[in-house]
Design a protein around this nucleic acid. Sequence first.
RNA 1: GCCCGGAUGGCGGAACCGGUAGACGCGUUGGUCUCAAACACCAAUACCGCAAGGUGUGCCGGUUCGACUCCGGCUCCGGGUACCA
Length: 985
Amino acid sequence: MPAYRPEEIEKKWQAHWKAHSTFRAENHSEKPKYYVLDMFPYPSGAGLHVGHPLGYIASDIVSRFKRLQGFNVLHPMGFDSFGLPAEQYAIQTGQHPALTTEKNIETYVKQLSSLGFSYDWDREIRTSDASYYKWTQWIFLKLFNSWYNLDTNRAEPLTALTAHFAERGSEGINAAGDADERQVFTAGQWQLFTEHQKLAAVHPYRLAYQQDTYVNWCGGLGTVLSNDEVKDGLSERGGFPVERRLMPQWNLRITAYADRLLLGLDTLDWPDAVKEMQRNWIGKSIGAEVTFPVQGHENAQIKVYTTRVDTIYGATFLVLAPEHELVNVLTTPGQRVAVDEYIAATKRRSERDRMADVKAVSGAFTGAYALNPVNNEPVQIWLADYVLAGYGTGAVMAVPSGDQRDWLFATHFGLPIPAISDAQKDIDQQADPTKEGRYINSGIINGLTYKEATAKVIAFLEEKGLGKGKVNFRLRDAIFGRQRYWGEPIPIYYKDGTAYGIAESDLPLVLPEIDEYKPTETGEPPLGRAQNWLYKDKYPYELSTMPGWAGSSWYYLRYMDPTNEAHFVSEEAEQYWGKVDLYMGGAEHATGHLLYSRFWYLFLKDLGLVSSNEPFQKLINQGMILGRSNFVYRLNGIWAPYTPSDKTVEAEPPVYISMALLNRINAKTASARDHAILKERLNEIAEVWNALNMPAAELAAIDKPDFLHVTALHVDVSIVDNDVLDTEAFKKWRPDYANANFILEEDGSYVCGWEVEKMSKAKFNVVNPDVLIGKYGADALRLYEMFLGPLEQYKPWNTNGISGVGSFLKKFWRLFHPEDGDFAVTDEQPTPAELKALHKAIQKAQEDIEKFSFNTSVSLFMITVNELTALKSHKRAILEPLVLLLSPFAPHLAEELWEELGHEAGSISTARYPEFREEYLVEDTVTYPIAITGKVREQMQFAAAAPGSEIDTAVLASDFLARFGEGKSAKKVIVVPGRMVNVVV
RNA sequence: GCCCGGAUGGCGGAACCGGUAGACGCGUUGGUCUCAAACACCAAUACCGCAAGGUGUGCCGGUUCGACUCCGGCUCCGGGUACCA
């Protein structure tokens, strides 16, 4: 075969791999296992752009490398196929989301296959298949039927709880969650409960539970919106008003696992940034809960949470969240109007808005007073939206001298700001939260240090029953329901208003067909449109569906045993594959998917269904590939000299000036030739300049313009090559460019400007991998994406460089086919130089892959091939191992050459990585120039020797030699001018 | 504000444990081949300077015979996050 033809080779081997299921992973093997997982994609209609495969290429290299090292590798792919875009498309067109999704997946599979990934496609899963979501529902039911026992620190079946109730009532149960939500009863009372009452008593213990939760409700759209979807109190889509509303919602009790999720992070081999994000997200804080009695309300108490209980003597007022349950009771008639107004104003703002304008101080006085438990001083009770209902107790004790927000509030409303520590400074200017110094104005802790005071206050409060130390988490339970169609139905039905889980044997609860995908007129979710959708033909189902992260929280387990109909994963398969050894994906999932998956894993572990402590041992975040946009510059005005006040007009027909020329003129570095070109061209097109307030005569009078005003416009990167615009293609690109005029460079080219931006259709900077594969081949694209820069770094795409790896592959090919001729590899003995080049590569390639430093490994291959080309090396002993080294990166070419080398087709996937032999690396000598100064100079006494002369190494003092490396010895010492010697080591 | 990263030629980026900064690729320039183009190949390419030489890894300072690398103090850029009491 003459010349390297990637398209033929790639088609051939992709077909071979598919026909032979070459990358099928077996669940039983003598080999050690290795599980390489990619975050599975949502199959969007736009298909893949050149940024998407970056992580897939890297993980594929690792998979293929691990196979060469003798591992049984599991490398699966699937689709997160429930999601909003398909549903929105369905609302607009009536097309069933399943059809859209199916079509998109087809495109994805085709594109992924064309990159030559070594996925085991037999294990492909889709979260929207009933055979998959059956098990997502099954896990939900397990959560629904479990509670979290804090005594054993794990989730347990509800049967254990009800057994306890029957024997001893609610006493002695120590369960995760809010105790206030739960009833207190005796065993006798429990026995007398009706079924309905029993379920009501059990419900608040469940790990999947329904509860009234504040949500962003948009009546106009008939759905709950996430904080991202609300802007200025209006829905982002449609602009309908959004309000905070208490609605029943399904929640998962992730908070029960807060501590374990936090501790587990220390055992993981993850990027520090991701671990830190999860830590902040969980947000553990250690403090105290303090109870303030309310003056004149015998039964009312306000609980506050504080991390600075030592500052309690400085607490001159309390602030409640506007949603606080006691607000109504406490408000005095005189303050009623002000309070109601304030609450109404707060309701109109979404949580995000409240957080957005942090500077505006607002609040309302309830008229009521609480008593500071340490000194019985009356303190005013206020409302303010800077206190969040969802964190701590929804109430804070305000210490204006120590907390900046409290200080601002006190200053704004004229409340007192007493100092509490002798170390506080300038508290009339701002709060000072110091922990230094001794307490003042602080009753029983006057004169104490921070540590002593904290202990003493807590002891005092505990004794009086008005406070106790408490750990708090920022993490909140996860809202689990969505008022949408295209998701997993929640397997719950209602009997007399009570929620029941459907029987496991009735799973899956299949998503019913409906004729429209909008919410119903009465505001029910789309599932409310389903006809006769009843459990046992009697009981209505839950109408909300699961959120996007449900199916993705356990998919990696299903890959181990994807077609099992009896179990979500068989015990043997789970025990064999264990956890994911390498997980590759984007950093944007740091606090969503990665946290929920860990939560579900811990839960399954508590139930004895999985065997490790964490699901993902090592995590790599591939950096995003950004787009490189190109611009053309439309001329709007010409000045000589430039007067900024002049108006500009878009010339019609339009004139576009080349960026390089434009920049030279505006930077005043233009040559006489530049000006001549400009002038000549302007004269040619002068007749079209009338619209520019630039009559031809006036134009002709301008000799040397020194400023050109332009508008930069995005231009499709596919009609730009190396920043040079294809002007004919530009005219055809869009109708309004058909009559474009150009001012070109001297060589006749139009040079575009460029900028790095996110890839998006609107910026015309999306690069399609299919086009590049067609031109250079998948192997070249794979190599180039790796060559672009460090894997984890954000980097701009630039198609310009891909020709370099293209020619590298050609050179590699030519080592086997000299002069583009027939295959001609010899059995000659290799020379030391060839062996050295090879073994350097064997060693470094392995190191680089293990460090995920793929950009340097590609460089290494280029260097090696350059060396071998220079040596005219066409020897089997060198080239055969080299093919193996290259096979993870450029698998198609490697397979082809492997076959030409006389091996059975496809057998490279069972070959072994070549062994590194150190003896072939002849060490290079290194020369260190060493300055001769001070003591050394005296000792050596030869600084004055003639430059270039050699000195006996034995003369060197041992302490001098020690400076440039333990165990190294000088081979030669050469005197160079300037009190220096070169020491050759 | 807080928490992470980062800063090296015209561009993307190399540089082991402190030891010749700029590997490799792109681009650019010159050349070979060709009727010509494309491909390919060869050579040059940090900056200033005709040269000798000098200057250079964001800035200021320190340690060291020697610093992109270590230490102290900044500047700028990117990402994450926040009335969390």
